[in-house]
Write a protein that binds this DNA or RNA. Structure first.
Lengths: 696, 696
DNA sequence: GTGTTGGCCACCGGCCGACAA
DNA sequence: TTGTCGGCCGGTGGCCAACAC
């Protein structure tokens, strides 16, 4: 039952504001795990060929479709796996593919109220919708009435009587509406999307509320996953969204009118296996993507993944994540903390970044269902500085972390680790023109991270965070430990660095400095301390998982991360390592544009448009809502070679030429600050202050 | 979507009175062609292995099911092909398998009137249904009311208010009925079947009217094929059966409430091919049979096929065929004439008896769709006498044959060949105990037929009827021609006759006697004369078809009809010849029960319940609506040895002991009548009087 | 500005006897 | 005996303003 090809803009209007299908020819990573989650039943991969947990693909074609029965929109996407030998630099595509939403078409979504969905009722049209989406109404008539004709996703036309009446005046759809509700089987909580196409046609789409087949008796779901990240359900008890009890007094027994058995995300396990099998052979394969299924996207822009995986994820990191509200009208950001960095399924998918992060939310009651997220879905923010800079940050009120008298937030009576901040991978639709999204981490901690620099071990290092706690409630920062994973080391840091033509590719390693005032001194290696007692997994779990992971996936690791195997065209070699290594070749040839990114909202700043330090000052102040006269003295930058310097020591023109990354330091401690001037090579340190990282 | 296993009796009640699934372990012929017709799209057999056009099978299991959506009943039948080496005598099974319908359960079918199917209306319960099927109503109440609960084919219960009211009083279903109509999507013309199961439970089934997906705008279909033979649609214009126009005044455009897209006969071409493939390997295979699909049954009782193929079919033969009336309430017999005996598909299915007979109907307007039938579906009758007996037959008005002044009916200005009558293969549900259903043909022409007796050449001979016309509008009766087909002759007629223990196995060969008053003398061989100019195929068609058949299927013929090959277990050898030869061994062992059959309605008469010739007289009179004092003098009977005698010459007790077949002779001509007393051996004649044949 | 409520009216589902075939 | 029709009645679909948040 293939649906109807529909207007991409209408499709997007129905899919929701957070859904962006990467354009044709762009590069994405395909995640079999995510694809499997897209199926509504468990997928047994044991019958599928072994495959990397992420497959770099080029999007070959996209068909925008709608289910003939439910009007649910979905996309059929044809993907061409890219062998490592055919890897291309995607700097340009990552930056310029999405033409910015200059032409965001007029659309309006409204969640049906009980009155809207009532059998005898009409539809209360929000004024904005009536005035911007509907045809112009002749208000001279009394009452003003017109017939509105809207096309649904199948091209069928629906006629509604649009009247402006009542006291106070309001817009209503009357005649025709009830029929529409019945035909489309809409219930309160479903959303209707009105959309004006470019040709002026009015279109109408449907977003059904996420609801089990059983109807209103289901358990309250709270927040559930949605498109790009997650879908929000406005609280207020499920009882509000009960279908009209509609007690037809007929006494027929049995044979209930079949409940809302709308097939959501009909991806079958077979189709997942088939896709994986084709991908394993390097052949093009097709996937179906339901943008409103409650699972994260399993196709992710390659640049987003790369950016996210450059971050050295560790417990304690603070982040925010975007969720769509229930009525799809807006996007909310929720704050959370990484509680555990752990491969989700170390048996079938070792070294997979999919749902790598186990998180706890500042508002856990609203996001019960979201306990594991993938790194590219979150944006790192600096939590500790927020605490310290609270007078500066207008958004600090959003965080309800209890603040310990020491000045550090406390979770459930346990000390919270103040994690260092790191570069933000600029998730989601930023359109900088800088050459590639390769972040140059700039922080004192970066120096530390440099010792674990080689990309192929990124996952290994992350795994280390969970591999070696000798106590489940403690955590050992791998401060100066040698690499512990027996993965083939493809490139030495120095070698890699050489290829970068001097561009910094340092990692942000979020390890706590030793001189934290609340942390006991940890000069000895493997010094452990408490972390999130409540959410951390038990020792047995960790050990068993690690051992399984070690034994089972050793070969897979080698295949994935060894440059030898990844350069072997005849084998499966979708190695992120080789991918990024190849990418490294291209660096330095182009000119990186400057951009800036704050902890709160991912923004970029083009330094070239600024003419002076004063302008920079004002710009940063307005950007972060700060008014600090000494801001510039808190500003450091990192140049192409990775050297960190304080801002203001040279002419502005030279500064903007050299600066590749800006960091607003929130700590006023001069001594700590000074140390950041050292080059990373011999620096071992720790500042307890997290920077507001600013990539330039 | 497998349906629900249901009570076999309910199944049969829904399937209709003409449907009889052969019981488990009985022998049937499986016809791939018929199976293909059962699929709703054309089946391409080129991908299937070559197979005989009929495969003798034993029914291994039968599952009675009902479609979950439409309530349409169907059966899953597991068939085990029988190799010729494992052929068994099936005389007993042919006679005694169907336990006579002693326990015909109480069921009642009614076609919904417009009032019944009306939205606001109730259901008018025919008195018979209310009194024999429904629970007993307490008539003391005023008005008498009760709640009737009926179980549908899925086991779901439906509640109806049954009331006896109005003036004059009548039975009605009110509350609950409308809901049932809506849920089951019933329209006027659909039938509802009420059925009282043996456990006393009331059941309700549905037979949907045969109607295209497009709804009432379809072309008028007239008569269409149905279960055992064909389904009757009561005339009266299709407009009567229009779904309630139900003009919901809502002005929504498009999106029509989906029409009656009930999938009838969902047999897929693939499943046909699969069945054929399995059958070709001699492996058990499963078929699905929709008893109410508009195609003839593709599983036919072996005995019926054998009996039918013993007839030397030729153009001009008069026959009758049973059709179910539209409301399934009764069976109507329609008269027709064989216009051409021709293999339906000589390319893929040479030598197949499937739809061997091209026919013209006395009421062609009602049976437009039925132009080709299979021999076992028709019963031979004598047409000529019917014209003459018109004063006696109340149903003679039904036949609109124009009568030529000569006394012979005329078709389109051409002379009609008055074919002799012959034995009837007793198709359909008769339950005699006579040794097998091998008919004892009794007619002068049988002698003629005996010269072509050898069974293996039955098809060949039939083919001859069409193979050698030198003019397309002429027809050459193969009067004394030697066998023309080069098939191996397995048994000589005499040999076969000997095996019959004296029972007659003569064939009825429908050749015109030479002394017919209207027929030119045809002493010379290949004397030809006109036949059915309009319906006969052209010379080119015939020649090309025959040549194709000859060249393509020569080997197949040999394989099918050579006893050598048919006894070769390793090859496909479902030879009708060997089959019937084996059958011959078992003849004469059983006792025939007495039954009677008229041309108009197939009735049986158990002579044993009668005590006198007077009773017989009355019984026959009421049976045929005749009041003739001299009826007995028109009555002849045939005894077990085939001797024909006049009724009344011996004591009644002796008569009922000896009589195996009764014939009411409608001609008062004593001379003609006398001739029927002769044994068939030396009798060569033609009587222009048709008997009302009465088998006893 | 819009969600909800209750009034009001018209339509129709549904039960009835009358009437006729 | 039963198909169809018109009458009648009550439930509800559906449009409306009032009211509340």
């Amino acid at each position: 039952m293939d649906g109807h090809t529909l207007d991409p803009q209408l499709w997007h209007a129905c899919a929701g504001g957070m859904v962006q299908i990467p354009p044709v020819n762009s590069l994405v990573f395909y995640f079999p795990q995510g694809h499997a989650e897209h199926a509504n039943v468990a997928v047994d991969f044991s019958s599928a060929p072994k495959i990397a947990p992420f497959v770099l693909c080029r999007i070959s074609s996209v068909k925008f479709l709608a289910d003939t029965e439910t009007d649910e929109v979905y996309a059929k996407i044809l993907l061409v796996p890219l062998l490592s030998t055919s890897l291309e630099l995607d700097c340009d595509e990552a930056v310029s593919t999405d033409s910015p939403e200059k032409e965001k078409p007029a659309s309006f979504a409204k969640t049906l109220t009980q009155s809207d969905a009532n059998n005898g009722g009409g539809f209360s049209v929000p004024r904005y919708c009536a005035e911007t989406i509907f045809p112009r109404l002749d208000y001279s008539a009394d009452p003003p009435v017109q017939t509105v004709i809207a096309k649904d996703v199948h091209g069928e036309m629906w006629k509604f009587r649009h009247i402006y009446r009542g006291t106070p005046r309001r817009h209503l759809l009357t005649t025709g509406w009830s029929s529409f509700v019945n035909q489309k089987k809409l219930v309160a909580g479903d959303s209707i999307v009105f959309f004006r196409a470019e040709n002026g046609e009015l279109c109408v789409g449907i977003r059904r509320t996420k609801r089990g087949v059983g109807g209103p008796a289901e358990s309250p779901t709270g927040w559930t996953y949605g498109s790009f990240s997650a879908m929000l359900r406005e609280g207020g008890g499920d009882a509000k969204f009960v279908r009209n009890s509609n007690s037809s007094s007929s006494c027929r027994p049995g044979n209930p009118t079949s409940p809302r058995g709308f097939g959501r995300g009909r991806t079958s396990p077979e189709s997942v296996i088939e896709a994986v099998a084709l991908a394993a052979r390097g052949q093009p394969f097709e996937v179906i993507f339901y943008p409103r299924a409650s699972t994260p996207e399993f196709l992710v822009k390659a640049s987003s993944v790369r950016a996210a995986m450059r971050v050295q994820w560790c417990p304690g990191m603070r982040f925010k994540m975007a969720f769509e509200t229930e009525d799809s009208s807006r996007i909310s950001w929720f704050m959370g903390t990484v509680s555990l960095v752990q491969v989700a399924d170390p048996i079938y998918w070792p070294n997979s970044p999919w749902r790598l992060l186990q998180v706890t939310w500042d508002e856990p009651d609203l996001l019960q269902n979201v306990s594991r997220v993938s790194p590219w879905l979150v944006e790192l923010v600096s939590s500790v500085p927020i605490i310290h800079m609270s007078p500066f940050s207008p958004s600090a009120k959003k965080f309800r972390l209890p603040v310990h008298p020491t000045g550090f937030p406390i979770f459930d009576g346990h000390l919270m680790i103040p994690p260092p901040f790191s570069g933000n991978p600029s998730a989601g639709g930023q359109t900088g023109t800088t050459s590639c999204l390769l972040p140059e981490t700039f922080s004192p901690a970066s120096i530390l991270g440099a010792r674990h620099f080689h990309f192929p071990s990124v996952f290994s290092d992350l795994n280390l965070c969970t591999k070696f706690p000798s106590n489940s409630l403690e955590w050992s920062p791998p401060l100066s430990d040698p690499p512990r994973c027996k993965v083939a080391d493809p490139i030495s840091p120095e070698k890699f660095r050489d290829k970068e033509d001097g561009l910094s590719c340092s990692l942000s390693i979020g390890y706590l400095g030793q001189d934290s005032p609340v942390k006991p001194k940890t000069n000895e290696k493997k010094r452990k301390f408490l972390l999130f007692g409540q959410t951390i997994v038990t020792e047995q779990q960790i050990i068993s998982k690690c051992s399984i992971s070690d034994s089972v996936s050793e070969n897979a690791n080698a295949a994935l991360f060894s440059p030898k195997s990844s350069s072997n065209a005849s084998s499966l070699s979708f190695s992120l390592a080789s991918d990024i290594r190849d990418l490294g070749h291209g660096l330095g040839t182009g000119h990186c544009k400057v951009f800036l990114e704050s902890e709160d909202v991912g923004r970029t700043l083009d330094l070239s448009v600024l003419g002076s330090y004063e302008e920079l000052h004002r710009r940063l102040g307005s950007m972060f809502g700060m008014e600090r006269s000494d801001m510039l003295s808190h500003l450091v930058y990192e140049d192409a070679s990775g050297i960190v310097r304080q801002v203001g020591m040279e002419p502005f023109s030279e500064f903007i030429r050299k600066a590749k990354r800006l960091t607003v330091r929130m700590d006023s401690s001069r001594s700590t600050f000074q140390r950041s001037f050292l080059t990373r090579g011999g620096f071992e340190s720790s500042t307890k202050n997290g920077p507001l990282s600013t990539y330039a």
